[in-house]
């Protein structure tokens, strides 16, 4: 444990020992938290509440905040329609995308952050440039390209595309993060005979957990929720991802709010779970960064 964290802890203990101001401060804190939560969650809670209403109550006017006769029929329908298979596809595709972007992104970000070589500046500029291309404009040429490569309607094709689209951002994020790390430790590792790859793996990456988690979360949210790319590049049920499946409830015969909302609520659960699981690493950055101080 570093000296600073000891001080921090004792400071925190000191604060909680002060009786008079604390109550009011706590009240203010929870009031502010309440306002934030209301803004963030109201539309989604409304969606949750509606997803629990029978089909002929969802549109009711004036609206009722809570379902009068809650039902799980829409959730049953969503899973009856084969949601598990589509969720599995989404997990495979998003998981592979996250691994690929973080892997390739860490390599490239490290090269840009720690090596001085000719063309580095150009590459940095290109990274930002690639980030700025509107993806919608690439769809038609990409379709042709993937077809020619035999990757149309495969999960691998989706993973490659998602990785290509998100990699520049991840490189940038990780580049930025690596730059904030003290270079001295790396130098020490290098003197100890570590190759650059080993330094990256054993020293840099463990110190970069908050940055990696932020980048992973960012990529995960994109890959998990993408509809436009998936609907264009896949066509069979075997490759259908969950967002495309959700879109089927905006059908020709009508917009089915019940299953649409139920599926959307279901789709949030895995990422929130991932985030909660990753929180640990997010906090450990405190001691990780403490190395510098």
């Amino acid at each position: 444990m570093t000296a600073s964290s000891v001080i921090l802890r004792s400071a925190a203990r000191e604060r909680s020992a002060l009786p008079p101001g604390v109550g009011r401060r706590l009240l203010v804190r929870w009031a502010v938290n309440g306002i934030i939560a209301t803004f963030a969650l109201f539309p989604i809670l409304w969606g949750l509440s509606s997803s629990l209403k029978p089909a002929d109550r969802i549109m009711e006017f004036p609206p009722r905040l809570l379902p009068q006769t809650p039902t799980l029929e829409h959730y049953a329908r969503v899973f009856g329609d084969g949601a598990s298979g589509y969720i599995l596809n989404s997990i495979l595709v998003s998981g592979a995308t996250v691994l690929a972007t973080l892997g390739f992104g860490a390599l490239a970000g490290y090269a840009l952050a720690r090596f001085d070589f000719r063309g580095r500046g150009t590459l940095m500029a290109l990274t930002v440039a690639v980030m700025s291309i509107p993806v919608a404009s690439l769809l038609v040429p990409t379709f042709t390209l993937l077809s020619a490569a035999g990757l149309i309607d495969t999960r691998l094709g989706l993973v490659l595309l998602y990785t290509a689209y998100q990699l520049p951002v991840v490189i940038w994020m990780l580049y930025g993060y690596f730059r904030t790390l003290p270079v001295e430790i790396e130098n020490a590792a290098r003197i100890d005979g570590c190759t650059p790859l080993a330094t990256l793996r054993k020293v840099v990456l463990p110190l970069s957990k908050p940055g990696l988690v932020a980048a992973a979360l960012f990529v995960l949210v994109f890959a998990w929720n993408d509809f436009v790319v998936a609907v264009t590049m896949t066509s069979s049920e075997a490759t259908r991802t969950f967002p495309v499946a959700i879109y089927f409830y905006l059908g020709f015969y009508g917009r089915e709010w019940g299953p649409l909302l139920a599926a959307s609520i279901v789709s949030i659960v895995p990422i929130v779970a991932v985030f909660i699981a990753l929180q640990r690493h997010f906090m450990s950055g405190l001691t990780g960064g403490g190395v510098k101080g």
């Binding site: 929870w30 963030a40 539309p43 989604i44 879109y247 959307s264 985030f275």
Partner: peptide, 20 residues
Amino acid sequence: GATAMRAVVLVPYMIAMLVG
């Protein structure tokens, strides 16, 4: 509390943009 609130704030970011 803060960790829980972070998750709360993230929910709008995590739900599909279309549905949000």
